Amino acid sequence: MSAQRLLVRQVALLVTTLCLLQTGWSAHWSDKDRTPVRKDLCPEEGDWTQGGGSCYQLVKSPTQWIMAEYLCREYFHQEAMPVKITSKEENDFVWKLIGDRDVWIGLQDISNPDRDVGVWQWSDGTNMTRKMYKNWYPGSPNGNGETCALFWEGGEGTWDDVHCREEYPFICELDIDECAKGLHKCSPKALCENTGDGYECECAIGYDGDGYTCEKLKPGQQSKKQKPKEKKPKKVERSYKDLDKCVKGLNKCAPQAICENVGESYRCTCAMGYVGDGFTCQRDTPQLREQRRKQKELEEQQQKEQQQKEEQQKEEQQKEEQPTQEQPKEEVESGESDKKEEVKEEL
């Protein structure tokens, strides 16, 4: 190739790259060379930031994990949810976006909290498997009833497990449907399926290929690259009105208290050997028992004095009412005597 043709080719490549940057195209995390996504596809309302095939909304107001999941969907966008991290590139992008702070991510342990090894699930219902990307801080998750995950401040983008009732900022993610918006590079002879973190192309029946290029099969020829679709995991439906806050760790009971779920709320009771209102409990000591004994005696004395006072007031009231009750009797007697005198006069 001559030097002149090489120069022309390099200039053309540079111009093409600049055009793509000016029109706001970028690559998707899962398929950088095939999935361009425009940066102007995020909702106009809110402070959304586009990255890869998703839009991200950072909410700095701290809240509990369950409320973060609720607010993403009900307040910011009906299809948004706490961020789901699927690759190192996305993890690094989100970490730079939120800065060095504790921020909820959409990952929760849905298993029995008494188990040492939990079943972690993303907010979209996908269970975390060994092959999936993860970036736990060394030693995490460590259980102990800590069933919600976050970016850990000072952890350089690593994740940690904490109690769900703690309050932290959160970040919502809204997937861009490349298939519906025509941003995919599937073959015209292929079907495009949005996967939540990208898209997949599958050649239609009668065609063979990788989905990006599809060739028509000859009579009697079978497709070699078509794979059976995997069943999507069943999403765990979460109720925000009647959620067992004791099991999910969404209560504010003291560590020394027993939590009892009551409909839409819960009740905290200090365990045996501890005293308090359930939200704060301290170990029972002889000094505390003596204080309670004196307090009980004082309350009983006050109650006794109150009863005596009420009885005294009742007696005084009865004395005041007694003359009024005797007055009608005197009037009756005087009336009878008058009648007797009238009878005597007639005789």
Rank of each mutant, 00 (worst) to 15 (best):
P62N: 10
T63A: 11
Q64K: 12
M67G: 01
A68R: 04
Y70V: 02
Y70D: 08
L71C: 02
L71S: 12
E74V: 09
E74F: 03
F76G: 00
H77V: 01
Q78P: 00
E79T: 06
V83S: 02
V83T: 15
T86Y: 01
T86R: 03
S87Q: 05
S87P: 04
S87D: 07
S87T: 14
K88H: 09
N91Y: 02
F93W: 10
K96N: 14
G99H: 03
R101T: 13
I105Q: 02
G106W: 07
G106R: 03
L107F: 03
Q108E: 13
D109L: 04
D109T: 03
I110L: 04
I110P: 00
S111C: 02
D116P: 05
D116R: 15
Q121M: 15
S123R: 06
S123M: 10
D124E: 12
G125Y: 09
T126F: 10
T126Y: 12
N127S: 10
M128S: 10
R130F: 12
K131H: 09
M132P: 01
Y133K: 07
K134R: 14
N135P: 01
T147K: 15
C148S: 15
A149W: 06
L150G: 06
F151D: 02
F151K: 03
F151T: 01
W152I: 11
E153G: 08
G154T: 09
G155L: 03
G155K: 01
D161L: 01
E167M: 12
E167H: 10
Y168K: 14
Y168N: 12
P169K: 07
F170R: 07
I171E: 06
E173A: 15
L174M: 09
I176M: 02
E178P: 00
E178V: 11
C179W: 08
C179H: 08
A180Q: 14
K181M: 14
G182A: 09
G182H: 09
H184N: 15
C186I: 04
K189L: 10
N194I: 05
G196L: 04
D197Y: 13
